Simulated scan of single mutants.
Amino acid sequence: MTEVLHNAIADYEQKQFWQTVNEQIEHTQREDPEGWADYLTEREFVLGPRPRSRRIAPEWDGLITFPEEKDETNAR
Rank of each mutant, 00 (worst) to 15 (best):
R52C: 11
Q16P: 01
T2L: 08
D71K: 14
T20M: 08
E44L: 00
E44K: 10
E69H: 03
R50P: 02
E59T: 02
N22H: 05
E59R: 06
A57S: 09
I9A: 05
D32K: 13
T28P: 04
G62D: 04
N7E: 08
Y39W: 10
T2S: 09
L47G: 04
T20A: 07
F66R: 00
P33T: 03
E3S: 09
L47M: 06
G35K: 09
W60A: 09
N22S: 14
P51F: 12
E31S: 15
V46T: 05
R52W: 14
R55M: 15
D11Y: 13
G35T: 00
E23A: 06
N74A: 02
V4T: 12
R55E: 15
W36I: 03
E13Y: 01
V21P: 03
T65M: 13
F45I: 10
T73C: 01
W18A: 00
D61N: 15
T73A: 11
H6E: 14
E42G: 02
E26F: 04
R55F: 14
M1R: 05
S53M: 12
T2F: 06
W18N: 08
P33E: 01
E72N: 10
R43Q: 01
R30I: 00
E42S: 01
E68D: 10
K15W: 06
L40I: 05
I56E: 01
L47K: 13
R52S: 15
R43A: 06
R76K: 08
T2V: 09
E23T: 06
P67W: 02
E72L: 11
T28K: 13
E44A: 10
D38G: 08
